[in-house]
Amino acid sequence: MKNAAIHLENLSISYGKTPVVFDVDFWVAEGESFALVGESGSGKSTILKAISGLAPDWTGKISVLGKPRGHAPDREFAKVCQMVFQDPYGSLHPRKTVDDCLAEPLAVHGIGGRDTRVKDMLDAVGLDQRFRFRFPHQLSGGQRQRVAIARALMLEPRVMLLDEPTSALDVSVQAEILNLLKKLRREQGLTYLMVTHNLPVVSFLCDRMAVMRHGRVVEIAEVDALKTGRLSDSYSRELYAASGGTLQPA
């Protein structure tokens, strides 16, 4: 796969002695938005963790933008691939201001021009400059998630791993964050690998999706199949019906 942003081959992941993900194979093209859906415990977040290096106990092959990823922490890797976590109430350091949080990746990688970069990034994610020196507890859930997205974008990565970025938010705030993610992807040509269990969100933001169950991928489908309800696997169809969709013959 020449233009694959993320390519997983025979990826199996375990936590200690417990195997969690078995032989997962898929690729995400550059500039594509790909969703992983499935119930809790199906291993979808674990895949993101393995790619980002948070679950180092894996076998198989992970490559991002053509470069194979090793098991050890990788400074260069952080520049191309960043992750946004589910819960904006837990993913920001409570005693660091927005400014500290956004400037830290720049300090770690020795990148200059912090002041302008932080200001520009706040604009990009739609946060007013007056939020720059506030602490997380002074922000609402949606604002915090904007900060978390801004933090991930500070190093100008090309691949973003999104772990349920809107499931902790209200529908109206969810709409704002989804619009923001769509806009950022359009403007910066980002590749998204997103974990979610909300199928309508997949329909809005993604091009393709993989349905996971018990640590295996059971179906990979185009988003059109989702929009028209023509999924083929029985479990994906069950999931679709539970989300209020009307099934069509596959």
Partner: peptide
């Protein structure tokens, strides 16, 4: 709310201009 057969390019959001600068 996004729908299952979503084709809109952008979701309409409630006006909360007091804290956003218009993005989103």
């Amino acid at each position: 709310m996004p729908r299952m057969d979503e084709n809109r390019d952008e979701l309409p959001v409630l006006d909360r201009s007091t804290w956003t600068t218009g993005a989103g």
